[in-house]
């Protein structure tokens, strides 16, 4: 206990410290903006940057939830249809119950996502099934439910005014509402991870669940809560996406699974759990959104975009340093 690094008070600071991967990620963001500026001045205009941050917000909210699950050493593959579920249930409730429906649409969408996350958590914590395969099955079930829901009941798919306002409105100094929401969600996750006992337990479970269990941590509760947060975040992002594109549609969450995981990992979070901070996830999300945007602006064909996307992820991860060799 003489080592000053081990004092309890300094730990949260350490967790938020700029480590190598976060520095590299932010460095790459700056490099990409400068490189883009050489191509066109537009890349440094406040309007372009704000727009990028607005688009980042949706991925950022999804990645916040994905990060909680990755931190405990699991993975949530049910994100795609949880996003769609959130959007579809919110718009449907608004259609079914009129005025009251519009008021409760957003909470209902988020609660549906949280419930899917709860079921995921039960399967992973109590049935002890690998999260990769259980959440995959859950994704298929939710997809089935949504196909039945849209095909059988033909619910309303138009976003409510409130959803539209939250996703695209810019009432305060022209800063998009979506960005404020991401800041609130990010602040909440950062608070959870660095200032609460639950946050400590998340890192403990991610590092070694046996040790956490033997130390008296209710590891099953931690696992379930992390999955609930992931489901709720994905569904909330779905609600906002419905507001952004004014309607909910099939498979609207599919393009978000891999970027969300890639963003979390590019932000320096260990895919095996136990290590990572939210600042890195912010860097990862902005990096991926910016990369996609610059490639789109340069009118790179989809084939080239995919290849560059894969190469950038690999090169950056190799630059973060290779994993420790597991032979001791």
């Amino acid at each position: 206990m003489n080592d000053p690094k081990l004092q309890a008070g300094t730990l949260p600071v350490l967790r938020f410290a700029l480590d190598r991967s976060v520095l590299i990620a932010f460095g790459c963001i700056v490099l990409m903006l400068l490189g883009g500026a050489l191509y066109s001045r537009e890349f440094l205009s406040p309007e372009y940057l704000l727009q990028q941050l607005q688009i980042s917000a949706f991925l950022g909210i999804i990645a916040s939830g994905a990060m909680m699950v990755i931190l405990i050493g699991h993975i949530d593959l049910s994100i795609p249809w949880t996003v769609t579920l959130g959007a579809m249930m919110a718009t449907a409730v608004a259609g079914w119950y009129g005025e009251i429906g519009s008021a409760i649409a957003i909470p209902v969408g988020v609660l549906c996502g949280a419930f899917v996350g709860f079921l995921n958590g039960l399967g992973v914590a109590y049935l002890r099934l690998p999260s990769m395969i259980f959440t995959l099955g859950m994704n298929a079930v939710v997809q089935g439910l949504m196909v039945l829901h849209t095909g059988g009941f033909a619910p309303q798919d138009h976003a409510t005014d409130a959803m539209h306002f939250l996703a695209v409105g810019r009432p305060i100094f022209g800063v998009p509402n979506a960005l404020f929401i991401w800041i609130i969600v990010g602040g909440f996750i950062t608070y959870l991870l660095t200032r609460t006992a639950f946050g400590r337990r998340v890192y403990a479970v991610g590092n070694r669940e046996t040790a956490a269990y033997l130390s008296g941590v209710n590891t099953n509760a931690v696992i379930i809560l992390c999955f609930v947060l992931s489901g709720a975040a994905a569904a909330f992002a779905g609600v906002l996406l419905a507001g952004y594109s004014t309607k909910a549609y099939q498979a609207m969450g599919d393009p978000y699974l891999l970027p969300a995981i890639a963003a979390v990992v590019l932000g320096g979070t260990n895919i095996l759990g136990g290590r990572g901070n939210y600042l890195g996830t912010i860097a990862g999300v902005v990096l991926i959104t910016l990369l996609q945007s610059i490639l789109a602006v340069m009118q790179m064909p989809e084939a080239g975009r995919q290849i560059i996307y894969g190469v950038v992820i690999l090169v950056m991860l190799l630059g973060y340093g290779r994993g420790e060799i597991d032979r001791k």
């Binding site: 993975i75 891999l258 995981i261 890639a262 990992v265 895919i271 095996l272 064909p301 989809e302 084939a303 080239g304 975009r305 995919q306 290849i307 560059i308 996307y309 894969g310 190469v311 992820i313 690999l314 991860l317 190799l318 290779r322 994993g323 420790e324 060799i325």
Partner: peptide, 29 residues
Amino acid sequence: IVVWGRLQPIITTLATGAIYYGTALFIRP
């Protein structure tokens, strides 16, 4: 990449998958 780059298989193949898909798209748009 998994053996010498020592990256996690799940994230390695996620990235290489994008590369292979891009190549497939390049061959057959």
